[in-house]
Design a protein around this nucleic acid. Structure first.
Lengths: 209, 209, 209, 209
DNA sequence: GATGAATGAGGATTCATTCAT
DNA sequence: AATGAATGAATCCTCATTCAT
């Protein structure tokens, strides 16, 4: 019944080739950056030769862009997620921020995407723009909305950070970068970091009773 | 009496050549990254030819490393700075963080250094290590010390963030990155950001009276 | 009774494949030359894929050679044609030269064949040799014979051009080249050219009465 | 006093490099055509390496174009030459056509230029246009003018070829092509050809007395 | 000190050809 | 018969580096 059963082994492999290549490209571009990565490196990683890469992707540039598209899972759903939250705002914020940490710090794709934005942004300006539109804006908007709702509910203080949620999310981004640049050499205790961060945030934002 | 006075203008200029080159190298490497920057680009910016660059620097790699050294002003003095602070800890923290913002967010060299750490870290691991030793550790240590003193003085709450000051400094790093990747396209109001951040931090860390 | 009647449409089409391919090859090779023409270009023009071309032709080189063979209609019959002519030599020459013009200037295959001889002669020396044997020699021999007969008949002057008929045929070749290189950008009035040429030739070759 | 004395050997050689390269490029492009000629072939012929070629010429295309410019000696002066002629028109035509033969048939540059026009015209349309403007038009105009003057002087018949001088010049072009494609394999007796051609032309164009 | 011609290794891309399906 | 994925040799062009002047 499955499509797989109707495809020959070769056909199955073939259908996966573009994704195999994009995955290999991701690893190589992460390791060496756009310019220093050779198309042949990517081919070797897949176990094919240069020519095969060009059979599926016109240019190295295109390959890079499609790889980015593949790893870029937009944050446009976080707003919907915030709406599913209920209970006291201290709990909602915790849940929301935990989700943010999971997606920003723990998701390798998102982490390395930030590396590409920083390292290749000058070469691929549209990558920076897309990152802003699909990641930063949705996340900040959702966070701000959550905060404003908390203020309206009388549970949060009307702090200036309500309007500049970057001041709160920022710590997660920085942790993401630390994980990215130090990898395993300097391990990061994400949970402890998250708890310490939450503690400051909640103490800093909760309305005095 | 100074050496400068005894040099002709031309001689002075020549004595400055290495620095001119390093400055030009900085701009070019920032724009294009290590691999994509051509030695000739740097030479053109200085107004000399390739050969001249090689008179002063053995290789492109060396040039890159020395450029990094030139822009890397260590943070090892921030601990001394913290010691000069007096008065209530809320004020000390404000002054200390303001200094941190100035050096992390507003100083272009520090900002772009972070770009190099992220973009070229795989190629120049020692840059990552140095960045850790000379920037992150001194800054975190001094911050932590300041917080611990505040706790000891009974002015700060013994929050878990005291031991993980990255949770506090993180926002500044993220703002630095925003300025870096968006440049002038998306202006950042550093002062407003700082005030909003301070507000959360102080409310979050001050001991209840 | 013919094979065609017993074949289905599809079978007929298939039987024509080699010729379709040769025709497409002709167009592509004319447009881009041997080296710059890709086997895939030819395949696209036929509406098949590369592999199909290789089913019918071993190599691109072979394909080129067979295409040449297809368009090369030998001039070995012009001598027979000359023998069919009768009447005064002025009329015979006019008829013969008109035939030469038709075949050299107006026949696209012959025209482009000359292009291949000039453009690819170094790569395919046998093409040059064949062109000499099958086109130039038969045409010149027949022309010379016609002229000599005219002289023997006392109708033509025993001009040195009788032995070097290229001096007469040359104009047609040049017109062929003009048509070839300028195509429609600079239209050539073949009839006017022919008449003007004939006029000089006849005045130049006829015996004085 | 000579410039040569003031240049070092190296400097002299350097100043000649572009021309050496263009000459080598001419030979290689003649032999193999534009596409099949490798930049490295040209470099080898000069005795340098690829890189050197690119030091002087941006691209292979540019190199080809400049090579063409180098070998293209315009025919715009033939009209002035015609004006220097005096005496009976039979003599003027002989002198003029001899000059045309010398420049069209015997000048290797002009000969091979025609090869490029035919072989590379589709790739470099401007070459075809330039050839028309700088070679064909000036030559035809001058020839026509000479013929018309001869008619006006009552020495030449008002033949239709007067207005279509290509019918006369054509033979020279064809001889040029023969020399080009057969090179030494089939030697051409240019003088005999010229004389035979002249004989027909003069008999064909002279007014009856 | 500075120049810039020259080198040559390296990398993106193309394309004739093969072959399993 | 036909397809099209895969190969790998070939070729344009770049650029770090050298070195004679």
């Amino acid at each position: 019944m499955s499509a797989g059963k109707q495809m020959g082994l070769r056909a199955q492999r073939k259908a996966q080739r573009p994704n195999e290549i994009l995955d290999a490209a991701f690893e190589e571009f992460v390791e060496r950056g756009y310019v220093a990565t050779r198309v042949e490196d990517i081919a070797s990683r897949v176990g094919v030769t240069k020519g095969t890469i060009y059979f599926y992707f016109d240019t190295k540039e295109r390959l890079f862009e499609e790889m980015l598209r593949r790893i870029s899972v937009s944050f446009s759903d976080v707003s919907a997620y915030a709406k599913t939250l209920s209970g006291p705002y201290s709990e909602r914020i915790r849940a929301f921020l935990r989700m943010a940490y999971d997606r920003i710090v723990l998701d390798r794709n998102t982490r390395e995407l930030l590396r590409f934005v920083i390292a290749e942004g000058a070469r691929f300006p549209q990558v920076v723009d897309r990152h802003h539109e699909e990641f930063i804006v949705p996340l900040m908007d959702a966070t701000q909305k959550l905060f404003e709702d908390g203020v309206a509910a009388g549970e949060l203080r009307d702090a200036p950070a309500i309007k500049i949620p970057d001041t709160v999310i920022g710590a997660a981004v920085t942790l993401c970068i630390s994980k990215m640049i130090f990898a395993d050499r300097i391990p990061q205790d994400v949970d402890a970091f998250f708890e310490a961060h939450m503690d400051v945030i909640l103490h800093g934002l909760m309305a005095k009773d």
